Amino acid sequence: MVNGSADESVLLTRDGAVATVTLNRPDRGNGLTNRMKDALREALQETAEDAAIRAVVLTGAGRSFCVGQDLVEHAEALEHDLSTALATVERHYNPIVTSLTTMAKPVIAAINGACVGAGLGFALACDVRIASDAAKFGTAFTGIGLTCDSGLSATLARAVGTARASELIMLNETFTAAEAHEWGLVGRVVPSDELTHATTELATRLAAGPTLAYAEAKRAITGAWPAPLGDVLKAEAAAQNRLGLTRDHRNAVQAFLAKEKPTFTGE
Results as ranks from 00 to 15, higher is better:
Thr139Asn: 05
Thr246Tyr: 12
Leu100Arg: 01
Asp248Pro: 00
Glu236Cys: 06
His249Ile: 02
Trp225Lys: 07
Ile96Gly: 00
Ser64Arg: 04
Val190Phe: 04
Cys148Phe: 06
Thr199Ile: 07
Arg35Leu: 11
Gly62Tyr: 12
Ala238Leu: 13
Cys115Asp: 05
Ala235Cys: 05
Thr88Arg: 10
His181Val: 09
Gln45His: 05
Phe122Asp: 08
Ser153His: 06
Lys259Pro: 02
Arg35Gln: 11
Ala224Gln: 06
Ala131Gly: 10
Thr196Ala: 13
Leu152Arg: 03
Ala131Gln: 03
Lys259Gln: 15
Glu49Asp: 13
Asp15Glu: 15
Leu257Gln: 08
Ile96Cys: 07
Glu76Gly: 05
Gly266Ala: 09
Lys261Val: 13
Leu195Gln: 00
Arg63Ser: 15
Thr196Val: 11
Pro228Gln: 06
Thr199Tyr: 06
Leu120Gln: 06
Asn172Trp: 01
Leu206Val: 03
Ala178Pro: 00
Leu243Val: 06
Thr196Pro: 00
Ile53Val: 15
Val253Arg: 03
Glu267Ala: 15
Ser132Val: 01
Lys37Met: 15
Val186Asn: 05
His74Arg: 11
Ala135Phe: 06
Ala159Asp: 12
Arg41Cys: 14
Asp248Thr: 04
Val72Met: 10
Ser9Val: 06
Ala77Asn: 11
Ala213Asn: 03
Ser153Pro: 01
Gly29Pro: 13
Gly145Ala: 08
Ala237Trp: 03
Leu120Pro: 00
Asn251Glu: 08
Thr102Arg: 12
Ile130Cys: 02
Ala180Phe: 13
Glu90Gly: 12
Asp81Gln: 09
Glu90Pro: 00
Val18Ser: 01
Ala118Thr: 13
Gly16Tyr: 04
Ser9Pro: 03
His74Tyr: 15
Met1Arg: 10
Asn172Gly: 05
Val56Gln: 11
Val232Pro: 01
Arg25Ala: 14
Cys126Phe: 01
Leu100Phe: 09
Val67Lys: 02
Ala140Ile: 13
Val2Thr: 14
Val18Arg: 01
Lys218Gln: 13
Glu76Pro: 00
Ser5Asn: 08
Leu245Trp: 06
Ile53His: 00
Gln69Ile: 14
Ala134Glu: 13
Gly187Arg: 12
Leu185His: 01
Phe122Thr: 02
His80Gly: 03
Thr246Gln: 04
Asp81Glu: 11
Val160Phe: 12
Gly60Asn: 09
Ala220Ile: 07
Asn172Ile: 06
Ala51Cys: 00
Arg129Thr: 04
Leu71Trp: 15
Leu58Cys: 08
Ala51Pro: 00
Asn24Leu: 06
Gly60Lys: 00
Ala198His: 11
Arg35Phe: 03
Val160Ser: 14
His181Glu: 15
Ala252Glu: 02
Glu76Phe: 05
Asp81Asn: 14
Thr222Asn: 14
Leu156Cys: 07
